[in-house]
Amino acid sequence: MDSILLIRTLASIVRGATPLIFAGIGETITEKAGVINLSLDGTILLSAMVAFAVTYTTGSVILGFIAAMLVGALMALIVAFGSITLRQDQVAIGFVLTLLGAEMSSFLGNPFVRLKGPSVPHLPIPYLADIPIIGPIFFNHNLVVYLGYALIIFSWFYIFKTQPGLKLQGIGERPEAAFARGSNVNLMRYVYTALGGALVGFAGASYSLSIKLGWSHRHTAGNGWIALAIVIFGGWHPFRVAFGAYLFGSLKSLSSIFQRVAPGIPSQFFNGAPFALMIIVLLLVSSGWLDRLLIRLPVRLRRLVHDALLGAPPGGLGRVFVKE
């Protein structure tokens, strides 16, 4: 493979992983607050459809993104309302919304199937895009991709380095303790669930307006589940969630290369690859095999590898907080 093709492939990985970054980090924020929003697959479908429909009708890409974020926030608020206020099963409501989002996107999106509409314009960053190798890989995309970089860094900084971020971790880890220290646990959970949902909606819009242009039935199906798995694989840490997004993003680009190199392999296997990988990475981080392997490493290295590969879910994840 020559170097131009390699650079182009890496650039397509960076671009293709962008929606997964938004959805994965959005869900990370929601889960850090202790709420599981399982509806991602349906929310991404519905918001992708709404984004395209709004942009197609109004001609404004920005309005499309705003509408999609509202849809994402609204779906997340239903999860929050149902589980926090009404104390119904969080997983059940998320699952119903997964199916509902998919069905509604098919029904409402029917008139918009396979139309050509506006999309996010290409925007190489001056000077940075001219750096050899790095430039074409990272800085020759559109604004959505750059916002993705900003989100990775900003969300990490916010969660781990700021006062409100530490409070966010508190309400997810030990809601009772956070309440005792004066946090309004349930209000903050509402806020972060909606915020995470809005980012998931943004991910939906970035499919239909930037990465996989337009709308068709079940346009993005499956990606929401992958984003949810990436959050677990990423150990609820923005950097590793981003790494997971690039890992899964690279599968698509790699499969087109493999298909050229080894045409004998049936193309269907490449469609299944992300889901096989999903099970494998979850086995890797959940099964305890890695822990057993780590024990054989020298102590100092063990700590390092552990922090790089494993992470525990927030202690209060999925548990409703009730004031005594």
């Binding site: 399982l38 589940w225 889901f275 096989a276 999903m278 099970i279 979850l282 086995l283 959940s286 099964s287």
Partner: peptide
């Protein structure tokens, strides 16, 4: 035996 939540194992399968 693998600790993979049945929702993710199931969706993958």
């Amino acid at each position: 035996y693998g600790g993979v939540h049945e929702i993710f194992g199931g969706v993958g399968l």
